[in-house]
């Protein structure tokens, strides 16, 4: 929603840029102002010992740690591990879940039979499985991928299956009247018609995959941003904790933007609908 507004504003800004400051620039300047003020007050408070920098960290300390962690290559290693586990788990869980959710369209009986199991698994906080998964698959990357796959699988499955329930039965009848097989109906109606639901599950799943990987890293791991935060937290090195948290934020935003771009690619017809409404 907000994304759309920003796009709209930026289009307007092209036209008005020469006359006066566009809302686009005003918004971003204000945002930058808020961040700078916050950092300045924080730094000053830490410098004047109004707050305890040992418990809260300070912007300059965070900066020093960031530079150190980049130079030593540790930030890169940890970030790569987390991103890799998240993306792989997300892709495996989301694709497998979506595929099975869609295929359940074929058999209402099977869908009804497994329904309570799916609901039970969906209600379970998946992170509760982490200790078991780590015992079974070790503390390396593999267990994090499995965790993220499980966390995203059920959401994708439920969402895809719900998508198949929203299909306009008239479209199915039309396909039948054209003499098409069940497989053709699946391919030409069920899949594309459920895609918006699948994509919206993807957007949720990026977050879930990240939570699962970080949670797994907290419990037992040899690298990753989760481990960085956990270890630094135990050592009361708050500046490093901040580096981890901010890096995670950046990772989350980037992954979210990628999925949003994917959305425009995969369901272009929704995009042209929006354009018409504008």
């Amino acid at each position: 929603m907000e994304m759309v507004q920003i796009e709209k504003v930026s289009k307007d800004s092209v036209n008005k840029a020469k006359k006066k400051l566009s809302p686009f620039i005003i918004h971003n300047l204000s945002r930058l102002g808020i961040i700078i003020t916050l950092l300045a007050v924080w730094e000053l408070a830490a410098f004047l010992k109004w707050i305890n920098p040992f418990l809260l960290g300070s912007p300059s300390g965070i900066w020093d740690e960031t530079v150190r962690l980049i130079q030593s290559g540790q930030l890169y290693t940890d970030m790569f591990a987390t991103v890799y586990g998240t993306i792989l788990g997300f892709v495996i869980g989301s694709l497998l879940g979506s595929a099975i959710g869609l295929l359940l369209w074929y058999s209402k009986t099977l869908a009804t039979i497994i329904d309570p199991f799916v609901v039970a698994l969906n209600g379970l906080p998946k992170i509760a499985l982490a200790p078991m998964i780590i015992i079974w698959f070790g503390s390396g990357m593999f267990s994090k991928i499995i965790l993220a796959s499980i966390a995203t699988f059920i959401v994708a499955l439920l969402s895809a299956y719900q998508g198949t329930h929203q299909i306009d039965s008239n479209l199915v009848n039309l396909m039948k009247s054209l003499g098409s097989s069940k497989g053709q109906i699946f391919k030409k109606v069920v899949i594309p018609s459920s895609l918006p639901w699948i994509i919206s599950a993807f957007r949720l799943n990026i977050g879930f995959a990240l939570i699962a990987v970080i949670g797994g890293e907290f419990i037992s791991s040899d690298k990753g941003l989760g481990r960085m935060i956990f270890v630094a937290g135990n050592l009361f090195n708050l500046n490093v904790v901040w580096v981890g948290v901010l890096s995670l934020m950046a990772v989350a935003i980037i992954l979210y933007v990628i999925v949003s771009k994917m959305e425009n690619r995969l369901i272009p017809w929704e995009d042209s609908k929006r354009q018409k409404e504008n």
């Binding site: 039309l174 009247s177 003499g179 594309p192 895609l195």
Partner: peptide, 19 residues
Amino acid sequence: SSTGHVGYMMQKDLLFPWR
């Protein structure tokens, strides 16, 4: 059974939005 022997046109145009 339905074998595509008749064409069908309804109140709703039933165009596939993704095509």
